[in-house]
């Protein structure tokens, strides 16, 4: 029986910048895994340590402690980069090259033959919205076009895994939409995707799992389903019959006194109607019902504020 190797394996990663008294710990004991075929969002505020972690994954930075493996190989080795497509947070591409030449360079470095490149480049450029721009010098490309080209260079070798630092940085809404379609298509084909983004709606719609990082530490990591479960909130304000205690099963949820009334908070969309039925059957007087759905963004902000709050 073959055991699948995690695509990314980060264990107790510590990264420090500077020396002596000026030493700053940018990443402080981060651990997570990304399994084959997963789409994982890496979210955090500016300076949280996302790009630093990604740079260690690519071998651009060296860890002060911890282990980082990519497809089972030590991060930074040539083998570890064999099956990865990487999009940096900010990168310019050689302005003296044409789009085709740049992709030939990156494709060639990835081991593609000239024939493969000839066949692949026009289709790939069309796929990222740069069809017909093969022979345009990159100095004539706008920021958005450069970002699209960046995506093309990451995809040129049809890698098994993608690492995108700031997924849709510099892209207009149309560009973001195009990119989402490309990623959804790749995800369906089983490509592993690990990306950071400040666009949390994008993360929510694309990812299977999310790793939240703050001040160099992982705040939370869970599947999108698990994370979103408590984000659906249903509220019931009720009075019990003859001032009795509410039915016992209500206590499995968030049940609080609110003056003479009771306030029940239910996070599970399937539990909510069951609780209403139980309350009605117990003779409770339901005064008000309300529902609200927190976005991932609200949840993230709440988590960060909680982490920042003095203990």
């Amino acid at each position: 029986m073959s055991v699948s190797v995690p695509v990314l394996e980060v264990e107790g990663l510590v990264v420090e910048y500077g020396k002596g008294a000026r030493r700053v710990r940018a990443v402080d004991g981060v651990s997570f895994r990304v399994e084959p075929g997963e789409c994982v969002g890496f979210i955090g505020a500016n300076g949280a340590g996302k790009s630093t972690t990604m740079k260690v994954l690519m071998g651009f930075l060296f860890p002060a402690a911890g282990t980082v493996r990519v497809f089972g190989h030590k991060a930074g080795t040539v083998e570890s980069r064999q099956r990865i497509g990487y999009l940096p947070e900010v990168a310019l591409y050689y302005p003296f090259m044409k789009a085709r030449e740049l992709l030939e360079l990156y494709g060639g470095l990835s081991g593609l033959s000239r024939a493969q490149l000839r066949e692949r480049i026009p289709g790939l450029l069309a796929r990222v919205g740069l069809g017909g721009k093969e022979n345009v010098l990159l100095r004539e490309f706008s920021k958005g076009m450069q970002q699209r080209l960046g995506i093309a260079q990451a995809l040129i070798a049809e890698p098994d895994a993608l690492i995108f630092d700031e997924l849709s940085s510099g892209l207009d809404p149309l560009g973001r939409y195009d990119l989402r379609q490309v990623l959804l298509d790749l995800k369906q084909k089983g490509t592993t995707i690990f990306f950071s983004s400040h666009e949390l709606t994008e993360v929510e719609s694309l990812c299977d799992r999310i790793v939240m990082i703050h001040k160099g530490r992982v705040l939370k990591q869970a599947s999108v389903g698990e994370l979103m479960k408590p984000l659906n909130q249903f509220e019931v304000l009720f009075a019990t019959a003859n001032g009795h205690e509410p039915p016992e099963e209500m206590r499995a949820h968030d049940l609080r006194r609110d003056g003479d009334l009771w306030r029940l908070l239910v996070n599970d969309v399937q539990e909510y109607p069951r609780m209403l039925t139980t309350l009605t059957a117990s003779g409770a007087d339901i005064r008000r019902t309300a529902s609200r759905t927190l976005s991932l963004e609200d949840y993230f902000i709440e988590l960060v504020r909680d982490a920042e709050a003095p203990r």
Binding site: M58, G59, F60, V78, Y86, P88, L105, Y106
Partner: peptide, 14 residues
């Protein structure tokens, strides 16, 4: 300076 090194060294080249 231009960060062109990132996409380049992200490819399997030592």
């Amino acid at each position: 300076e231009t960060r062109t090194i990132y996409p380049l060294l992200a490819k399997p080249i030592g």
